[in-house]
Design a protein around this nucleic acid. Structure first.
Lengths: 199, 199
DNA sequence: GTAATTTCTTGACATATGTCAACGTTTTGA
DNA sequence: TCAAAACGTTGACATATGTCAAGAAATTAC
């Protein structure tokens, strides 16, 4: 069921070309800076407290990025599905430990890039830098709006938003992960759903 | 009371040099891409719905970045004090309207850079790009942790965190702005403080 | 300096959400 | 295929926080 190297390359290329134009012939060298890896369901790609070994592009599968506090409560900050970039780049580049956990929810195929190769890519390929910068600029506004939502909306409203924005996600990951992402207990989400669908 | 042009330049330079090394002689040209502006207390630098005219560096004073939802409730996502960069770069670069409001809390002196000049700076000065990228990488982790905190911590815990991290802020801005930043009603913060200091 | 405005506090009450515990259902892995 | 693990639901109860309204205190602007 796993994709061939050529298919993976094509997926990766098309995703980057959505954002920037790649000069003739440069993609091959860029692609060679990345390695292919496979993870089983529920395996950890990276654990909190570790210095990240790489940054990630998801070819197939889905993984969760989450934080854990001192009381052991965890909360998912991001679901990375196929064609998403994910990782703790600040920690990767500065060679410091990360607070984030990255775990495969389903079996995953991913491409990874080491800190060393990340710097190479950044220095060699201006189009990559540009894509990267644009990605971050957009992403920060999005997360800031997420902070806002978590402060001003009820759980039910946030759940309805998610149904609109990422309906496929709800079919794909266990409901208690959705609850964790929304900042709700599993019980509360269950009750919200009951109220929404039973009346 | 306002700083001279030379003082402003020095402040700006020292802030960037904290992050990256600037090659001999390049700073002057970079600095010329920025303009100086002044705003009075409670004036708007940019309103939601507008296409941003520039991105901002704060020389003096403090401003708030906030969002408003359909019900008219507002929530502060960021306080920018002196020596902070602030703005909606995704909207600026793409020439689309921004959801964010930027308002001076105190009288402010700021440097601004237009969309056009921003692209110039980005293309001409790799050290600027680098500083910028590092800033964003760190910032995204920080905001993600902020989402986490707003989902897993009580208002009292978030207030205590803020006292530790930015004690000077509490002396400087009205308490109901602090409440808004913490995602609490003004009344609730008042009660938290009463409980903390009266017992 | 004083009026107008903004800010902060407090009470009473409503409500969203968490916690704990029990139990049934579904999925997983060998 | 079947036992074990993971997942989802429900009840009872506790609690954090919001809302509305009133008034006191502080700050601002002329």
């Amino acid at each position: 069921m796993s994709n061939s190297n050529e298919q993976n390359k094509a997926i990766f290329l098309s995703e980057i070309e959505k954002r920037v134009k790649i000069p003739e012939g440069e993609f091959e060298a860029f692609y060679n800076l990345w390695d292919y890896k496979k993870f089983k369901r529920s395996e950890f790609i990276q654990k909190a407290g570790e210095v990240p070994k790489f940054s990630i592009f998801v070819l197939h599968g889905i993984l969760r990025q989450y934080l854990v506090n001192d009381k052991g409560e965890e909360s998912i900050v991001y679901f990375a599905q196929e064609r998403h970039f994910i990782g703790d780049l600040a920690a990767l580049r500065n060679r410091v430990s990360s607070n984030f956990n990255f775990q495969a929810i389903e079996a995953c195929e991913i491409l990874v890039i080491s800190a060393e190769n990340w710097e190479k890519a950044f220095n060699l390929f201006p189009w990559w830098t540009d894509a990267h910068v644009r990605g971050f600029q957009k992403w920060t506004s999005m997360i800031q709006e997420q902070v806002f939502d978590s402060q001003t909306k009820t759980g039910e409203e946030r759940y309805l938003d998610l149904i609109k924005k990422k309906p496929e996600l709800l079919q794909r990951v266990p409901q208690h992960y959705i609850a964790s992402y929304l900042g709700l207990s599993a019980e509360t989400l269950s009750r919200i759903r009951k109220k929404m669908f039973n009346v």
